[in-house]
């Protein structure tokens, strides 16, 4: 066998190996069943939710009262002001993005709890049917993801960036600069250029003030969103999750108790009470399955 034949054989073997490896992993994914969710898993997710909530309070936003910015305004240092404003805008956007991530993690935890509830309700229903209680199953649909859009804050082009070379003054300046005009013209144009630079700075200050205002309004809205996300997590997501955990535990306990009782036996008052409680828990569970995170 020559070297080219060996090379072709090696390539064919490698291709076959990768195809087989890819095929087997596909089979593994299709065959995989969702892992059963336990009460322990749910408690771990709750811990992650409270951590996300505490992280929200440490997010930083643009502060118009920042000492460096105030000083730059006093000294009218346009370059420094622009730099600080851009840094503030970046800080706002990053913190806002993090707040959205925290909310989505908390909502995903609620969806995880709903999945766990779906699993345990599936176990409870056949038992309830035995006791003459009929419930249909509901499918868990994932909660929506929170996203945010913020407009781009930018300065308008100013004098230095949009010189108009077609004006008579610009033509005269061009001639003077090229040496074909008089020195008096060059001097006057030099003074005019200084005046234009001062005009430009004054206009730029106004634009920077506008930019600062826009960033400040944005920071206020973004900070408001962080507070609102905190309230949503505290008053909606965590109670929803706690309700799921309570039901999960209650159904698990009822299943253990009723599982040991002879099927269909409801004469005993305690068993009857357990069946009624399980029926109520299943009804609440159904409501929570159809309720998306935060609703």
């Amino acid at each position: 066998m020559d070297s080219s034949t060996v090379f072709i054989v090696v390539v064919v073997l490698l291709v076959l190996y990768f195809l087989m490896r890819g095929g087997s992993s596909t089979v593994a994914i299709v065959a995989a069943k969702p892992a059963p969710i336990s009460l322990f898993d749910l408690h771990a997710r709750r811990g992650a939710m409270t951590t996300a909530l505490s992280e929200l309070s440490s997010l930083q936003f643009f502060d118009a009262e920042d000492a460096a910015l105030v000083e730059a305004w006093e000294k009218k240092q346009t370059g420094q002001i622009e730099e600080l404003l851009r840094a503030g805008d970046t800080l706002n956007r990053e913190s806002w993005r993090m707040a959205g991530v925290s909310y989505n993690h908390a909502a995903a935890a609620v969806d995880f709890g709903r999945k766990g509830l779906e699993q345990i309700l599936g176990k409870a229903e056949p038992l309830l049917v035995q006791y003459g209680v009929d419930y249909r199953t509901y499918k868990v649909t994932p909660s929506e993801v929170l996203t945010g859009d913020a407009k781009i804050v930018q300065l308008q082009l100013h004098w230095g960036q949009k010189l108009n070379y077609t004006t008579p003054a610009a033509q005269a300046a061009g001639r003077a600069a090229a040496g074909s005009g008089s020195w008096q013209v060059a001097l006057v144009m030099g003074i005019a250029a200084m005046a234009m630079a001062a005009i430009n700075d004054s206009k730029l200050l106004r634009q920077l003030k506008e930019m600062e205002g826009e960033i400040e309004a944005m920071a206020e809205a973004m900070q408001g969103d962080v507070r609102e996300i905190c309230v949503v997590i505290q008053t909606r997501l965590l109670p929803q999750f706690d309700w799921i955990v309570r039901l999960f535990g209650q159904i698990e306990q009822s299943l253990q108790t009723l599982g040991s009782v002879e099927a269909g036996a409801t004469d005993d008052a305690l068993t009857h009470e357990q069946v009624v409680r399980l029926g109520m828990a299943v009804a609440e569970g159904k409501m929570l399955l159809t309720t998306k995170a935060g609703n």
């Binding site: 993801v145 996203t147 945010g148 407009k151 809205a221 408001g224």
Partner: peptide
């Protein structure tokens, strides 16, 4: 907050 230039949505 229409004047803030920011908008939230659920997708």
């Amino acid at each position: 907050t229409a004047g803030s230039g920011t908008r939230l949505s659920l997708r």
